[in-house]
Design a protein around this nucleic acid. Sequence first.
DNA 1: TATTGGTTCTGGACCGTTACGGTCACTCCA
DNA 2: TGGAGTGACCGTAACGGTCCAGAACCAATA
Lengths: 362, 362
Amino acid sequence: MHVRRPATLASLAAELGVSRTTVSNAYNRPDQLSPELRRRVLETARRLGYPGPDPVARSLRTRKAGAVGLLLTENLSYAFRDPAAIGFLEGVALACEDSGQGLLLVPASPEREDVAAVHRAGVDGFIVYSVPDDDPHLAAVLERPVPTVVVDQPELDNVDRVGIDDRAAVTQIAQHLIELGHRRIGVVCMRLARDRNDGFVTVDRQHAAHFHVQRARLEALATAFAAANVDWTTVPVVERFDHNTACGSSAAAQLLDRDPHLTALICTSDILALGALAEARRRGLRVPQDLTITGFDGIPEAERAGLTTVRQPVLEKGRAAGKLLVNAADHTRPRTVTLSTELVIGTSSAAPRMSEERWFGP
Amino acid sequence: MHVRRPATLASLAAELGVSRTTVSNAYNRPDQLSPELRRRVLETARRLGYPGPDPVARSLRTRKAGAVGLLLTENLSYAFRDPAAIGFLEGVALACEDSGQGLLLVPASPEREDVAAVHRAGVDGFIVYSVPDDDPHLAAVLERPVPTVVVDQPELDNVDRVGIDDRAAVTQIAQHLIELGHRRIGVVCMRLARDRNDGFVTVDRQHAAHFHVQRARLEALATAFAAANVDWTTVPVVERFDHNTACGSSAAAQLLDRDPHLTALICTSDILALGALAEARRRGLRVPQDLTITGFDGIPEAERAGLTTVRQPVLEKGRAAGKLLVNAADHTRPRTVTLSTELVIGTSSAAPRMSEERWFGP
DNA sequence: TATTGGTTCTGGACCGTTACGGTCACTCCA
DNA sequence: TGGAGTGACCGTAACGGTCCAGAACCAATA
């Protein structure tokens, strides 16, 4: 049995009686050799089954991988079911496509704390999207000597950042509800740390949250409602580790079971809010007359449902991250891109009913 | 200005006075050296800022890239907006994650016929999803000396394949409509080739279609309806290059403008069917009383809308493709995985009204 | 005729790592 | 005491390219 070694640049060169450089030039710099010789090279390549220069060897020599790594520590299934995450992914993919870069999804499940995948990724840079700030994968990325862009993460030394002003956005929602007269509110938030805690959240846990975005939103809510004389320690906050409408429903149920007098539920994502809407419907509560519900993200489903929410430009976020990385070499870092958001007032928020308001009357 | 060259295995080894092999072993084969020396190596690495073995150099040496390439020649924005494509992507990602492989999205816009990205992709194999069979990117992939899996594509020599039985699935739809009594039908299909043709499709173009799936579906429809004594050449078929609900609407409009007596519209995707539903509503046509509409794919939105459609396991399709590739070395090829589909009868199909049926009466 | 300039091709260094097949010292046991 | 066995480490040879400085050749110019 003769196992034919695949042809290489060297074997092609030998066959043709030219130097390796010349063969290389035939592929990469056609102007560096005569058309006739080039034709011969390519023809012989075809004859010998030479598939063209090996991409890995080329990357080693040129120090360019031609790809960008994307780290979503999120369980992939959740990422692919969250329209906001998909929008982000699309934005990144578009930016990469524009610049001819590949996009490498780095496998990093939260369970398996296997950082090896980060070490093995042949990429020219990383985009890190919404991972806990103590994530070992993130730490591994930061050790790699390539430019990095973090998205929806706290600032880090010498790392570009893309995000929105979560505090300002959430404060708008809070103001909206405060102006409507809501004082008895409940909050549904996404996971705050790597450990699972499906239930009520202490204030300590809120402050210690490792997901920057969630922490910022809760803190901004606390500040805004404190200014309206609502004691934040009395505001029930429920956390859900997973991110889907079922979680939103059960979280809403948990809040309403504890305190049926709540007049508004603030959810830190549209997905959760849609679940909360379903739970309200199930209980026969009219939205917004009996219960106000707000979301966050501005996904199409939310818009269709008439949810009051904050629209954030998820696609632009991805695109901005991609662009930042692609021309990272040209600029001094760190740079920060803060995208603008917009409060969308839908039909899921209104003033609380009088019977509820009286709790705060004279 | 002193530009510090980043540390390498060799420089680390020199600093420590050990061989490069030993440093390599410190990272890859801890059992090959004493714990004490290993500790020293890693400590010195930290001190020198050595980030661990270079992934590209390692790939070159080990002949493993640790990643799978995914080729979606589709314009990315369409892929990320098509729930079926997203489901597929998720399946592939899951399979990759399971085996610790990265997933590289190869940038290949249909406009730019730039095949270089395929040549530059450092991957151990390719998955090719629903591209025209004359696509230059596909040709480039086939030239690369790595295993390949094609999905929703015609069979190719020595290439694994994943798909469904499109003919059988579409035949079920046709039978369903025929049994209901429909004879005046119109068809809305996705793009048939790389050139844009938003409008009616000749039978020639149907047979020459370069998108295998679309061709198979049209041919199966033709066969099934011919068996029911419907002359296929009289059946209007409208093609849309892009893939969104707006296209479905305009295509339905085009069909109904041409022949208001159509009793059923068969769409080759749910997205198109949802658009057709919207157009019917706009025209005041009741579905299914005045017009039957069917889709294909079984996306959640379709289910919600009560569409009669064929459900295909898109996630499984992705997962199967990923698995096939991951253990491609273990098996002789080619292998074919054909996944099963299921006719879902919703509320968008019913018998045509008598007034229409009479056209075919005695 | 010598010089210049341009095109075409070459040789060798280098990219940073891992595979492979050793060597060497030391222990163990008959 | 000597031979086998074992653990720890090393040297060399790839892996498959690209880069760079220059050589060889030829035609045009001074």
